[in-house]
């Protein structure tokens, strides 16, 4: 009898325990898992937002790099963490749009196992050419590809990356496969383009921006829907007759079933952080536009991305297992 009474008393208590926990959130340092190695674009974005986030939440935001397997190792870890808002993930196009189509034995579901909180930034890809290659526009590129007996070579940061998939699509549109030269990361690929070993490259804007500004490579086309404000002189693929829009993206996500107050608080803080002049300026410097989506919109965005990339991954022939 006493036991049941205690249980009866405890039941409503536990029902309000979750919102209470959310009110007390964050009670301890927050772990922000970055599924890539330190120093890359994903890591930079995480560090840029971690500093103001930490200030606003009053708890340290500790970045934990968990690189490996197309960003799936770190993402799997975040999916399995306790949904108390103390473990977050820097989700991105690799972990939540391409890898799910690429890896057959993935141990997480990009939608069901996560709470998607906010889109941080969108970056277009850009086709760049060695300045001595004589390719300034997509028309030049198409002509050179047609006239060359062996077709054109184009470098990318790696097989299965969004930049590689862009090359596959372009080849389909041109009616002739472009010879894809994969590298380990954007840095070595850019070196090869600057050195003239490969005439063209499909790269994400953040890693290419400095080289375009310095004139060591020439921007041929941007993969965004509209011209990029930082590079208004570079025409989009669509403007040049190639109906193709791709963006790589970075967001903040957590494990599934995060308490609603935590999600709301994070989304609100991030919205304010992303509108800070300093953050906007930094994002613009390496070519990204800050994202502005509500948690529900961001979740729908991830679902749309998943659906859009799956067929391209299949067509690219990239197959890890």
């Amino acid at each position: 009898m006493r036991l049941t009474r205690r249980a009866a008393l405890a039941a409503p208590l536990s029902a309000i325990a979750a919102p209470l926990a959310a009110q007390g959130w964050p009670a301890q340092p927050i772990r922000l898992i970055v599924p890539f190695a330190p120093g890359g674009t994903t890591d930079l974005i995480a560090r840029l937002i971690a500093a103001p986030l930490q200030e606003r939440l009053g708890q340290p935001v500790v970045i934990e790099n968990r690189p490996g397997a197309g960003a799936t190792l770190g993402s799997q870890m975040a999916a399995q963490a306790a949904p108390d808002g103390h473990t977050l993930l820097l989700s991105n196009i690799a972990s939540h749009a391409i890898s799910p189509a690429l890896y057959a034995n993935l141990r997480y579901d990009a939608l069901r196992d996560f709470t998607h909180i906010a889109l941080l930034t969108l970056n277009p890809s850009v086709i760049v050419a060695n300045p001595r290659a004589g390719i300034a526009s997509m028309a030049d590129l198409a002509r050179a590809h047609r006239e060359s007996p062996r077709g054109l070579d184009m470098a990318s940061s790696g097989a299965g990356s969004s930049n590689h998939l862009l090359i596959v699509r372009l080849g389909q549109m041109l009616g002739r496969e472009i010879n894809h030269i994969p590298f380990r990361g954007a840095g070595p690929a850019m070196t090869a383009v600057i050195a003239g070993q490969v005439p063209l490259m499909s790269d994400s804007l953040p890693s290419a921006a400095a080289h375009i500004r310095q004139g060591s490579v020439r921007a041929v086309a941007m993969s965004s829907a509209e011209r990029h404000p930082a590079f208004p002189e570079v025409a989009t693929l669509r403007e040049q007759g190639f109906d193709l829009v791709t963006n790589s993206w970075f967001g903040l996500s957590g494990p599934a079933r995060l308490p609603a107050p935590v999600v709301e608080r994070l989304a609100r803080e991030l919205r304010e952080i992303l509108s800070l002049g300093e953050i906007r300026a930094r994002f613009a410097e390496f070519g990204g536009a800050p994202g502005a989506l509500s948690p529900a919109e961001f979740t729908a965005f991830v679902a749309a991305e998943l659906a859009a990339w799956a067929p391209l991954v299949r067509e690219s022939g990239a197959q890890p297992d």
């Binding site: 490996g68 380990r184 990239a318």
Partner: peptide
């Protein structure tokens, strides 16, 4: 680990940690 050219996994026996 992962083959640079095709993205195929080699000798990883399905262990994700070996893919790099």
């Amino acid at each position: 680990g992962t083959d640079v050219q095709t993205g195929q996994q080699r000798f990883t026996f399905g262990i994700p940690e070996l893919s790099d």
